[in-house]
Structure formats: structure tokens, C-alpha cells
Design a protein around this nucleic acid. Structure first.
Lengths: 150, 150
DNA sequence: CTCAGAATGCAATAAAATTGCACGGATGTG
DNA sequence: CACATCCGTGCAATTTTATTGCATTCTGAG
């Protein structure tokens, strides 16, 4: 993992659709060398996968929300059970167990408020293990990266 | 945006490294038709970009945290100023203004606690506009998608 | 300094993407 | 219902890109 690897990873984290020859130019290597490095980074699992990022609005998911959740019954099996339940919801993009005043945090991608309402009913109301929950609707996004700083 | 487009987008959101011919097979189209659809989805901006997703641990960013922030001075210019400040930090992956009991929420990718400490000093202490902040360190992740449900 | 292992560049080859073109199905109109 | 038009499709030719073998160069340990 030298300087060139880092440079390649940074390029790939922003735009993985460039041709290998172009990438080689950027880092000052021959196409074959460049390709072999990228392949090595993939096989080592440093590059986990390559994905397409959609425009949320154009994909019909304008709303974004963060929900913090306090459970009634804390501890390992209960937390896991709730997270698994949440993970099954397609609107739930991320589900984490966390430290702090709450037990879990969910990131949502929503079509509209109707979907939010329905989701809350399924996850938070009825006979679920949720004591309280706090919803933060995203008003404005100043930064939104998938890239991990190196 | 018919059924085939949605299928293509779902495939690309999980793995955009497949060959066009493979994708064509998956959706039951010829390679040329498949390619033209993908190109159209890109030009329409539905596909925003294609990126490499790294393994956080192998990239040296084992720690993940969510921080909610209450500002001293609320309202538009102050919130924007704080978000811009936060966005300049490389450990800050996402920065949002939100509704609810807090004003902003930050997603962090951290190397270690030392980096967290330094970041807190820069963003939350001293003469910044932050009244209080709550850190939730991610213990376990049950779901972590970049894909937007269609 | 010397040697072994790893990385590199070049050129040939294989694979993939891209394009032109003709066909077929859906839609709208007289 | 016949007809013209438009859009998407598949095939095959072409161009571009990825991949590999091999000789050379670089790097680090002893």
C-alpha cells in the first residue's frame, strides 16, 4: 500500500467507471501495471465491490431520515433481534447498534411520508421492543460521500 | 423506466463490475440493447456515478460514529456555516441539517479515538457555534447498503 | 555489493464495448 | 382497418479496452 495504491483507491472511490488506460495515466503507470495493482487491491479485499450510485430524487426516494431508537429490553439478544427486524425493511439503508443514550440508529431512504408512517407502525408500534424513538428528517445535505479517507 | 430498467439498476447498485454481456443475460436482452439502456440511465442522471467501495477495516478506518449536534445560534446562516466547517473534515463522511431536537447530524469514519478527540476539539470546542453534541459509536452493523430501493 | 523477489513496460492477444443497420412492435391518425 | 412513425431491439462488423507473456528494472535483505 504505497502512494500509488492510495492514489488509485482515491480515484476509484470517486469514479470507478474510467478506463484502465486513463487511470494509468493519472498515476503515471503503464496500463498493465495499473491493472495488476487494481486487481491486487481487489483480491486483497481492500476494494470490497464496485457499485452504481443512483440519484435518490430521480429514483423516487426524495426523503432521507435518521431514526434513533431506545429499546425496552436492552442487551445482546434483544438488540440483535430488533436490528434484524429493521434490516428486513427495504427503506432501511443502514441499521447499527450504538453506544450512547439510545440503543440503535437507522438510516432511511423514503419515498414519502406515507411510507414513513407505515414503517413506524411496523417497527415501532404494536408489540415491538421499542421504548421510544426520535426521527430526524434530513433538511439539507452538505456532504455525502461513500469514499473512505486514506 | 420499465421493469427491465429497474432490474438493471438493482444489479448495478449491487455490482457494477460485471460485463455488459453478463448483465444482458441477466435481464434477457442483447448486449447492445442492454448497453444502450444503461447509457440512457446514466445520461438521464438516474445513475449518478460508479464508485469503488472499500473495506473500512482494511483501509484503516475501523471506527464509525454518528454525532448529533445542537447549535448555539440556530437558523439558516449559522447552520450552513457549521455544516461547511464539518464538511471540510475528511473524517466526516456525511453532514446533514435535520429536524428534531438537534440541528445537525454527522457521520464519521475514524482511524482511532485519537482522531475522534482531535476532531471534537476542532469542531465542537473553542469558539464554535456548538451548544452540545452527542456521540454514538457504532458497535455493530446489521445492514449497510448504498443501494436505493426501487 | 550481490542476489532474490517483486514490480514494471512493451507488445501481442483476448475480451469487451460500441456502432450501423434492418427489423418488429406499439402508438396515433385518417 | 390501413398506414405512417417512432422507439426499442438483435445481429454483425468495428473499435476500444482489458489481459497476458516475457524481458527488464527496481527494491530491500543480507
Amino acid at each position: 500500500m504505497d502512494r500509488i495504491d492510495r492514489k488509485l483507491l482515491n480515484l476509484l472511490q470517486r469514479d470507478a467507471s474510467r478506463t484502465n488506460a486513463h487511470m494509468a495515466d493519472e498515476v503515471g503507470l503503464s496500463p498493465s501495471s495499473c491493472l495488476r495493482r487494481i486487481r491486487r487491491l481487489r483480491q486483497a479485499g481492500i476494494i470490497d465491490r464496485v457499485v452504481a450510485i443512483l440519484n435518490p430524487a430521480k429514483a423516487g426516494r426524495r426523503l432521507r431520515a435518521v431514526v434513533t431508537v431506545e429499546l425496552r429490553l436492552h442487551g445482546e439478544p434483544n438488540t440483535r433481534q430488533f436490528l434484524d427486524l429493521a434490516a428486513r425493511e427495504e427503506a432501511v439503508i443502514q441499521a447499527h447498534a450504538v453506544t450512547g443514550e439510545v440503543d440503535a440508529i437507522l438510516m432511511l431512504r423514503l419515498r414519502d411520508m406515507e411510507e414513513y408512517d407505515a414503517l413506524c407502525h411496523r417497527l415501532f408500534q404494536g408489540r415491538t421492543n421499542v421504548a421510544r424513538y426520535w426521527t430526524m428528517m434530513v433538511i439539507r445535505t452538505a456532504k455525502d460521500e461513500t469514499a473512505i479517507p486514506l
